[in-house]
């Protein structure tokens, strides 16, 4: 099971026929296993990994670290649920260490992002502090290099 996931996590565009060959099984079996994984919520979606810097779409991304006073009833979950309902928010994670929630958001400009933090995040009940860190350059994301691919130096013998 995890072998299929390992392959898909790297490249979700392989056909069922290709996956079946790689895993030494049938296409029908692959289709069924994927359907099961999707149904169980193990596979949450399939997305292209886009380097927006190579497009004419200007976007800025920031990671915001939030310190939270957990609520008595819902702990960190209640506030996390409010934050994740904002469309601008790409990811929300509960963290160990110096702060509590890590929120990644993408906006059209630095000001956009800063205003979002000031107007939407900071006023929320339970948010004690925010620290906004803008992404300046992506080197690698989800295992894929965002810098130019290294040239294959082999083929010399």
């Amino acid at each position: 099971m995890d072998k299929l996931l390992k392959i898909l996590a790297k490249d979700a565009r392989l056909t069922n026929a290709q996956l079946a060959a790689m895993l030494n099984t049938t296409e029908a079996d692959v289709a069924e296993r994927i359907a099961t994984l999707e149904k169980a919520g193990v596979i949450r979606g399939y997305q292209a990994l886009v380097d927006w810097d190579k497009t004419d779409r200007e976007l800025v991304t920031a990671e915001i670290n939030l310190k939270i006073a957990p609520s008595k009833e819902t702990g960190f979950d209640g506030i996390a649920e409010i934050i994740m309902s904002f469309d601008e928010v790409e990811s929300v994670s509960l963290m160990s260490g110096g702060y509590d929630l890590s929120v990644i958001i993408t906006g059209r400009s630095f000001k956009d992002v800063a205003m979002f933090v000031a107007k939407r995040l900071s006023p929320l009940d339970g948010v004690l502090s925010t620290a906004t860190h803008f992404v300046l350059k992506r080197y690698k994301e989800r295992g894929v290099l965002f810098t130019n691919e290294e040239k294959d130096e082999r083929g010399q013998v």
């Binding site: 392959i7 026929a17 290709q18 079946a20 060959a21 790689m22 895993l23 030494n24």
Partner: peptide
């Protein structure tokens, strides 16, 4: 091994 099966099949 995975690559091998992928190529042979194709």
């Amino acid at each position: 091994d995975m690559r091998r099966r992928l190529i042979v099949d194709a």
